[in-house]
Computed example of a mutant assay.
Amino acid sequence: MVDDTKFLLLLLLLRSSSLCSGSELDIQCLKSIQQSVIDPRGTLKSSWNFSNGTNGFLCKFTGVECWHPDENRVLSLRLGNLGLEGPFPQGLQNCTSMSSLDLSSNNFSGPIPPDIARQMPYLTSLDLSYNSFSGSIPENISNMTYLNLLHLQDNQLSGPIPVEFNNLTRLTTFNVADNLLSGPVPLLLQKFDAYYFGGNQGLCGTPLDKCPRRRRWRIHIRLHRINDQSSIGAAIGFIVGFVVAFYFPHRFIFSKRLRAYVVRI
């Protein structure tokens, strides 16, 4: 509760300081997004008109929610299901007081920026679900210490879930289902239901099936068995040879330079 109060005070401080410069940054933020995404339906092109210039004009843009209707300071971006395409949008670091980003149900592709937490350090909600993002999940997300919701399901993300996610102690909603992830589920995330990890054949550990033993241990054990079998075979051969020599000592045949010699013992 104390941490939540501190967070709200911090956001209020950001909101109240440098309003003019902050508004200019937020305008630049949305301009960069509009220019960097592919917008087949023309939703952002038609709605995001920067020629107005009045106080709070950003707040009338599709998907934009402001801290106050008379201030051009972005609180959240809800751009889900707009048919947007291309790589991860650029310029989000200029929305300096944004706390929520929703890009779900679009056609974004490519990697999630490795420095995403530096761009948006105060996010409490991040929804990138139902896109085609690929590559690994950035461990940098673990630096979003205020994050309550993280949705990454239905993408093409691969590799492990970063163990650094154990630092996301505020998470109450988490979903990475239907990706290409592998490896064990980090300890902190084991409290979530198996449903939110489904569709990743390589994931294992609570709440999923146990992780298999490492293959190298199996190879090690197998080599020991082979060595043991070789030793046993050599011992048996020695014993058989000794018995034959003891009970049938009449003749042994040796060869030297392709000529046979008979030696009587």
Rank of each mutant, 00 (worst) to 15 (best):
I137S: 02
I137W: 08
I137F: 00
P138V: 08
P138Y: 07
E139L: 10
E139Q: 15
E139M: 11
N140P: 07
N140T: 03
N140R: 05
N140M: 11
I141R: 09
I141E: 07
I141K: 01
I141C: 10
I141W: 04
I141H: 09
I141A: 01
I141P: 06
S142E: 14
S142R: 13
S142D: 12
N143K: 15
M144I: 15
M144S: 06
T145G: 02
T145L: 10
T145H: 08
T145R: 13
T145V: 09
T145S: 01
T145D: 08
T145N: 09
Y146R: 14
Y146K: 15
Y146S: 13
Y146T: 09
Y146H: 14
L147R: 10
N148L: 15
N148F: 11
N148T: 10
N148P: 07
N148W: 08
N148G: 12
L149F: 01
L149T: 15
L150F: 01
L150V: 08
L150N: 04
H151E: 09
H151W: 04
H151K: 07
H151C: 00
H151P: 08
Q153H: 10
Q153I: 00
Q153C: 07
Q153M: 04
Q153W: 06
Q153A: 00
D154M: 13
D154A: 07
D154T: 04
D154K: 11
D154E: 13
D154Y: 13
D154I: 11
N155E: 10
N155P: 03
N155K: 06
N155C: 14
N155S: 05
Q156K: 12
Q156S: 15
Q156N: 14
L157R: 05
L157Y: 04
L157K: 12
L157V: 06
S158R: 06
G159C: 09
G159P: 07
P160Q: 04
P160E: 00
P160A: 11
P160K: 03
I161G: 00
I161R: 03
I161H: 11
P162W: 02
P162L: 02
P162E: 05
P162N: 08
P162K: 02
V163E: 07
V163F: 10
V163T: 05
E164Q: 06
E164G: 00
F165Q: 06
F165I: 02
F165P: 04
F165M: 06
F165Y: 13
F165R: 03
F165W: 07
N166K: 03
N166C: 07
N167V: 05
N167G: 11
N167F: 12
L168H: 11
L168S: 02
L168Y: 10
L168E: 00
L168N: 13
L168R: 02
T169N: 02
T169I: 11
T169D: 02
T169Q: 05
R170Q: 14
R170E: 03
R170H: 00
L171E: 06
L171D: 09
L171I: 12
L171W: 03
L171S: 09
L171N: 10
T172F: 09
T172G: 08
T173W: 14
T173A: 15
T173R: 14
T173F: 14
T173S: 15
T173H: 15
F174W: 11
F174P: 12
F174K: 00
F174S: 01
F174D: 00
N175M: 05
N175R: 09
N175D: 15
N175Y: 05
V176D: 05
V176E: 01
V176P: 02
V176N: 03
V176L: 05
A177H: 04
A177R: 06
A177P: 11
A177N: 10
